[in-house]
Every structure is written in C-alpha cells, then in structure tokens.
Amino acid sequence: MLLNESVPQNAQGKEESTQSTLRHTANCVVMVPPKEFRFNEETAQDNEFQHHVSLSQDEITHRTMAEFAAMVQSLRKEGVQVVEFDYPYAEVATPDAVFPNNWFSTTPDGTLYTFPMACENRQHEVRPTALAASLMQSGREVYQQDSLTEYLDEQAYLESTGVMVFDHLNQTVYAALSQRCDRLVLEDYVKRIGYERVISFQTRLPSGAPVYHTNVMMAVGEQFCVICDEVIPEFERRFVLKSLAKDKQVISISIDQMNQFCGNILQLETVRGDKVIAMSQSAYNAFSPTQRNQLSTHGKLLPFDVSTIESIGGGSVRCMLGEVFLPSRKPVL
C-alpha cells in the first residue's frame, strides 16, 4: 500500500500543550534576503521548476533583492510580522537561502526544529543558534531546540514545510514522498510534535519524476485546500481528497496551474487576526476568476511579483516564508 497513514503516539508529553495552543495560521514569518541567489545546479537535479535565464548575475541580484524588499514591505503593511534573518557570507555560498521554510519549523510550545537537507550547499543554510537569537530579539520565545539532522549520516532527508503540508487543526501532515521526503524521518518528526496522522503518498509528473516538494502541488488553509490532485495515483488520490474534503473546500488545480505556482500559497493572519493569503503574481494570474473568488472568501489575496526568484529558484512565495508559531515573549516589568 503506497499511501501511508500512521497514528504515532504523542511524544515527550506534548499532547496537552499542543492541543491547548492549536492554531493553523501564523502572524509572523521569517524571510531571508536573496543576496547570494543564483541558479542552483545541485537542486536542479530533481527540481523541474527551475529555469536558466538570460540575465547577468548583477541583474539577477538586483531584481531578486527588489522583489524580496517589496514583499517584506507589503506583508508588514498588511500587519504580518516579518523577521528578516540576514546571515554572514561563508566559504560555501547558499544560493537558495531565500527559501528558509525548508530547513526549520517552530511549534507553539516554543520548540525550534531543524531538518536534514538533501543538497550539500543547502545544508549550510541551517543556522539554528543565529535564528533562535534573531527570533528572540524579535519578541518570540525559543524554549528548546530539536534537530533531525542526524539523519544526514543515513542520507535520509526531510525538508520541513517544503515536503510537509500541515493541517494543524486536525493534527495531520500531508507529504509527497521523494528524495527530499524520507518516510521514516517524516514519521519521526510527526511523532516528536505529537500530531495524530501523517498521510504520505506518491506523485508523478508528466516526465515521470515525483514532485520535489509537496508545497508546490498543494496548500492547506483553515477551511480550504488547493491541490493538483492529478499528479497523485488514482487510489491514493481518492484517499487524500476524502481526508481533505472532511472539513475543507477543495480547490483543484491543473498541472499547468501548478507550474505557475498556484499550489505554492500560504494563508497567514495579521496581528489583528485578519486572514490573508500570500501568493505570487504568477499564481494569482493563473487562478481562474472562480478560483480567486473562492480563495478570497478565506482571506485577502496578496499577490507578489517574485517572477525572477520563482523562475530561477523553482520555488515561490510560500517557499520564502518560514512560519513562526512560537509564543510571544512576555515584557520585563
């Protein structure tokens, strides 16, 4: 049976804290400037969304930094807290650092998790100590850290919310299995956070390859989901859709729409509690008017022009946003 649904035991006594603080949307995100951004030859081995462009490196840097700055400014204007996590240059360049959601995640109990990345140059993005300091400086508590990077020794990988799409309200994780999403590491992480189910499945693109990251083919909001279900084998597809449709409005997208990053969107909330849905301008344009109307009932649509980043990097707006679910720091009296 290709599809795997497991019900792990709650680990480390986290059940009570998880259930008491359960929420789906974050009002704070981490973003990393694309100052070393370029076409990443390592990730291109299994990322069919990457493309070479006829721009000089100076032009690429100028355009991507401008796209990043505009997105940060717009999110803050809407009332979403943005933590800009800059980093010093090192011997190994990190061309995909602009996609931080792949190497860390956070939980409401104050835990910062880090993950094993499949590509060597992406492993150098993982900077938990510096990130924890930046988050705490921004008013968030980091009570503890946990890492799954020991799996690198086994060449087993799990690229965080790139490969895992969460339904936090139902304590369920959806994951397309691939080189970047190892089933055993996936189940270990879901056990650590005390969630109830992991639904893993196979995918197949027209080329025959699997989807490299689940978050390019699907997104889950509080009451909706967007999914390119045609890339899932029929038997598994029925199971996944049945699970999603229990309490979500299912918005199905085509492979062409997926290629325009319609699946790479993220529902967030503002500090006032209003819902917004971040997406690229490419995705916004590729959604049909009916689909845009459906999505707009779940939050204000926020399209961002990140065309240079998504064309060269093979990831879009959701990949640029690392959600922060950490508790806010209490002011010192």
Rank of each mutant, 00 (worst) to 15 (best):
M164F: 01
E234P: 00
G208E: 03
E234K: 10
Q155W: 00
S288L: 14
R238H: 12
F239S: 13
D229H: 13
G208M: 05
G194H: 03
I227D: 02
N264M: 08
T214G: 06
R192M: 12
A245C: 01
E230R: 11
I199V: 15
D182T: 12
T172Q: 02
E150L: 10
V173P: 10
A156E: 13
A283C: 05
S252H: 13
F166P: 12
Q171P: 05
S254A: 04
K246R: 14
Q202P: 04
P210R: 07
S282I: 01
P210F: 02
Q155P: 03
Y284W: 15
V198L: 06
D229Q: 14
I232L: 05
M218A: 11
T161Y: 00
D274F: 07
N264I: 13
R237F: 00
P210A: 08
Y151E: 00
D188Q: 12
V211Q: 03
I199P: 01
Y151L: 00
V216A: 06
M164A: 15
F287G: 03
N259Q: 14
T270K: 12
V163F: 02
N215Y: 08
G221I: 05
C228S: 07
A156W: 01
H168D: 06
S288E: 11
I199W: 09
L169V: 11
F261C: 06
Y174I: 03
C262T: 13
F224L: 14
A278K: 00
R180Q: 07
S160Y: 01
S288I: 12
N170A: 14
R192Y: 03
Q171T: 06
A283V: 04
S178D: 04
Q267N: 03
C225P: 14
S288A: 13
D256S: 12
A245L: 01
A245K: 09
Q171W: 12
V250F: 03
G162F: 08
L184F: 04
N285D: 15
L158A: 11
V211A: 11
Y189N: 10
C262I: 09
